[in-house]
């Protein structure tokens, strides 16, 4: 069985066969054992011990903790990978990245208006969470195209707050 495992920015190829395990083509000696009734596993990779707390979140996605680090992994087999490639996955963002709420909270202030030109790092909105005000900043330059919230709104994590258009794109209008 061949699995394609995406972790962070990387994708690893893991082959599980009758002769053992290969990682990106290299044979590695591995053993994975579980503590019964818990999410705790111990992975030995060439005898190096990794204590792992794992949780499957479905569709090949795994949330792993090891030595204080969290890893989000997605495991695809060949078939799933082919389907993913054919459907194209995400085509990548067009224009400046929209501003989304990074956490649930209360919109204290929106610091821009539709039509404003913003620079990378410019404050766009202030969202209060856990009694602290957090200033959300523009990821890149652009012009404010749409504002979806006003001061006083309660927002959920990942809720769309402000959309932008690229300055050059707009010039072509």
């Amino acid at each position: 069985m061949i699995y394609y495992v995406a972790v962070g920015e990387r994708t690893f190829v893991v082959e599980l066969g009758p002769d053992g395990v290969k990682l990106d083509g290299d044979v590695v000696e591995v053993d994975l054992a579980h503590v019964d009734g818990t999410a705790v596993s111990n992975l030995l990779v060439d005898h190096v011990s990794h204590r792992i707390v794992a949780r499957g979140t479905g569709s090949g996605r795994w949330s792993l903790h090891s030595r204080g680090r969290r890893f989000e992994a997605e495991v695809l087999d060949e078939r799933a990978r082919t389907i993913r490639e054919m459907t194209g996955g995400s085509s990548g963002p067009i224009g400046p990245r929209p501003l989304k709420a990074p956490m649930p909270g209360l919109v204290v202030k929106v610091e821009v208006e539709v039509g404003d030109v913003v620079e990378a790092g410019q404050g766009i909105a202030i969202v209060e969470a856990m009694k602290m005000e957090n200033e959300l900043k523009a990821a890149g330059p652009g012009r404010v195209h749409a504002i979806h919230v006003t001061a006083g709104d309660t927002v959920e994590k990942d809720q769309l707050l402000v959309e932008f258009v690229a300055l050059d794109e707009e010039g072509a209008e």
């Binding site: 069985m1 699995y3 495992v5 972790v7 962070g8 990387r10 690893f12 893991v14 599980l16 395990v21 990682l23 590695v28 591995v30 994975l32 596993s41 992975l43 990779v45 190096v48 990794h50 792992i52 794992a54 499957g56 090949g60 795994w62 792993l64 090891s66 030595r67 680090r69 890893f71 992994a73 997605e74 495991v75």
Partner: peptide
């Protein structure tokens, strides 16, 4: 090393 271990663990768990 940590990334490789995470990838291996995820593949084995999934399998």
């Amino acid at each position: 090393e940590a990334l490789r271990a995470a990838a291996l663990a995820a593949a084995l768990l999934e399998d």
